[in-house]
Design a protein around this nucleic acid. Structure first.
Length: 196
DNA sequence: GCTGTCAACCCGATAG
DNA sequence: CTATCGGGTTGACAGC
């Protein structure tokens, strides 16, 4: 079975039912946002039939409710629909439920869970990323602090600055930091040569 | 619609 | 080989 959306914003189902065979995953690689969460559950065997078969059991009062397991095909179709649209309008929900032989409510719940779990995965990944970034920044911070210490140590014995014009030593207090290029210049506008 | 939670179920590891 | 356990997955629901 194939669900082919005609637009990107709306889920429009065009279905060719026989066999459920054609799952050669025509999905663009750009859908990697959700990562493995988008991976279809391969070995998902279904323990129960679709809802129509055990519906009565579930609604029965004293039967312990068994958990529905979606078939591979149902899961795959839901996944495909999810990739096209993360939410369904009532019409889409109805149609999809009909195709899947599920209740609209079940389709709704599946999408709810899918959204939540996809978001959770995303958050976890962002968290990992931020942790790594924090580590890198901490390292960089250490290096810079060390550099600052070294520069402070150099300040104890201030560098001698020689004026290229007069060839006389200038006081280090004449040195400022150019805010643009961050190079050392002198306030006296003359080019200087720093001798450590 | 989102979030937190429950519970059924699956699966790999382990002990006996 | 079987039973058990612990962790992960996922369908379902309640409350907001």
């Amino acid at each position: 079975m194939a669900i082919l959306p005609t637009t990107s914003s709306r889920l429009d189902l065009s279905i060719s039912v026989p066999g459920f065979n054609s799952f050669s995953s025509p999905l663009p690689p750009s859908v990697g946002r959700d990562l493995d969460m988008n991976k279809a559950p391969d070995e998902e065997e279904w323990m129960m039939g679709s809802m129509e078969e055990d519906e009565e059991n579930n609604n029965g009062s004293n039967n312990p409710r068994k958990k529905l397991r979606l078939t591979k095909e149902q899961s795959h179709l839901l996944e495909q629909s999810f990739r096209q649209n993360h939410t369904l309008n009532p019409k889409q929900k109805e149609t999809l439920a009909e195709v899947l032989k599920l209740k609209p409510r079940q389709v709704e719940v599946w999408f709810q869970n899918r959204r939540a779990r996809s978001k959770l995965k995303q958050t976890e990944m962002e968290c990992e990323y931020l942790k790594r970034w924090f580590g890198l920044l901490t390292e960089q911070n250490k290096r810079l602090q060390k550099e600052v210490e070294e520069l402070r140590a150099m300040k104890v014995a201030p560098p001698t600055v020689i004026s290229p014009h007069s060839c006389e030593p200038l006081p280090a207090s004449n040195l400022t930091m150019c805010p643009r290029c961050e190079r050392v210049t002198t306030t006296a506008l003359d080019k200087t040569r720093i001798v450590v």
